[in-house]
Amino acid sequence: MQERTYEKYFRQNRLPHIWCPGCGNGTVMKAIVEAVEKRKLPRDKTVIVSGIGCSSRASGYMDFDTLHTAHGRAIPFATGIKLANPELNVIVITGDGDCTAIGGNHFIHGARRNIDLTVVLFNNAIYGMTGGQASPMTPLHKKATTAPYGSVDRPFDACQLASAAGASYVARSTAFHVQHLTDMIAEGISVEGFSFIEAVVQCPTAYGRKNKMPEPAQMMAWLRDHAVLQKAWDKLPEEKRSDKFPIGVFLKRQFEEYTKAYAEVIASAQGGKK
């Protein structure tokens, strides 16, 4: 049997978690700690920061310094931690509502600053904690308790948003593609700058039941059948893309990281008057 090396990263006395049966959040949480192990991040110098919502409960189960902030505000708190002590590795856990609705402004400005955070967005396309309301990432015409006739609000593509706002690394994967997801996160951790990974997760309870996928396995099959690797996606004709979505690394670029840039400000200020 394969050794479960990831278990040491969890606070065993806080488990079991509060997520519903069939939820994909636990898969992403595990992928994060596997990526931490892969990158050999020192545990006492790694901080997990989360917002509010289903995704953001993950911080409480993870055995690091952990911070469960207010709704939408994980990135500002994380920015303060990283800038105050740049030797810390800071991983942000957020959700589609937390990151792109109430925290949308912080999200784009975190990317714009290119501060060295690894932001993992658990995208379940719904507000799960409050019982299934539409989020800015609920697909068009899908149902939610606040969109009983189907959502008419156009959804965000959070990866495009992060790319346009200035992130150094942008990727997407799903809770079905576990190894791929782990690799996407691990690569994001190794990039110096603002890294953004969207992890599409199944939420059979709050989303699936309203949208003809009440069984976890149905939702996992949907992830399998609709996620298309970037290379294949590029070759896919427009008419065949319909409700499919690409996964993989969308962007990786080098741009001066914020705390490095600020270290230069300090050096210049301490060097006396110019």
Binding site: V47, V49, L67, T69, A70, R73, I75, P76, F77, A78, T79, G80, I81, K82, L83, A84, N85, L88, H106
Partner: peptide, 9 residues
Amino acid sequence: GVVLGASLA
């Protein structure tokens, strides 16, 4: 938010 994060650090 940013000052609270920095305070915790």
